[in-house]
């Protein structure tokens, strides 16, 4: 069965791009969220196998959202979507329980490589 993914990013552009990348890799994107608040709610509701998480978002940052998601389900797999220059934020997210990260601008194959690795499929 295809792994189920929740995509969190405040930009539709990024969400669409990430969704397409996952679709091309045989994943099923089951939900999207545009901010940290929505992300936590959607996570609890959808229980995805994997969540990609933007860091800089309105209402609640990706780090806060990750912390809450891990609190709700310690086995949750959250992958941070970061940009160069956000190293300390990503480390904070890792402390909060993020499983891995990808760096924007990313290429489809890089994203899929990280994700498959994290899910133990590589």
């Amino acid at each position: 069965m295809a792994k189920r993914v929740l995509v969190v990013d405040d930009a539709i552009f990024m969400r669409n791009m990430i969704k397409d990348i996952f679709a091309s890799g045989g994943f099923e994107v089951v939900g999207e969220a545009a901010n940290g608040l929505e992300a936590v709610e959607k996570f609890k509701e959808l229980k995805p196998d994997l969540t990609t998480m933007d860091i800089v978002m309105p209402f609640k940052s990706g780090i806060e959202a990750t912390r809450e998601i891990i609190k709700a389900d310690s086995s949750a797999v959250v992958i941070m979507c970061s940009a160069l220059g956000q190293e300390s934020l990503v480390m904070e997210a890792i402390e909060a329980g993020a499983s891995d990260f990808i760096v924007k601008p990313f290429r489809a194959e890089d994203v899929l490589a990280v994700v498959k690795k994290v899910l133990g499929e590589a």
Partner: peptide, 18 residues
């Protein structure tokens, strides 16, 4: 903060688009 997010988003999208 909001300004930072806007600039950051534009940077991210533009860099993805090349």
């Amino acid at each position: 903060d909001s300004m930072f997010r806007h600039a950051h988003s534009v940077k991210g999208m533009a860099s993805s688009m090349g």
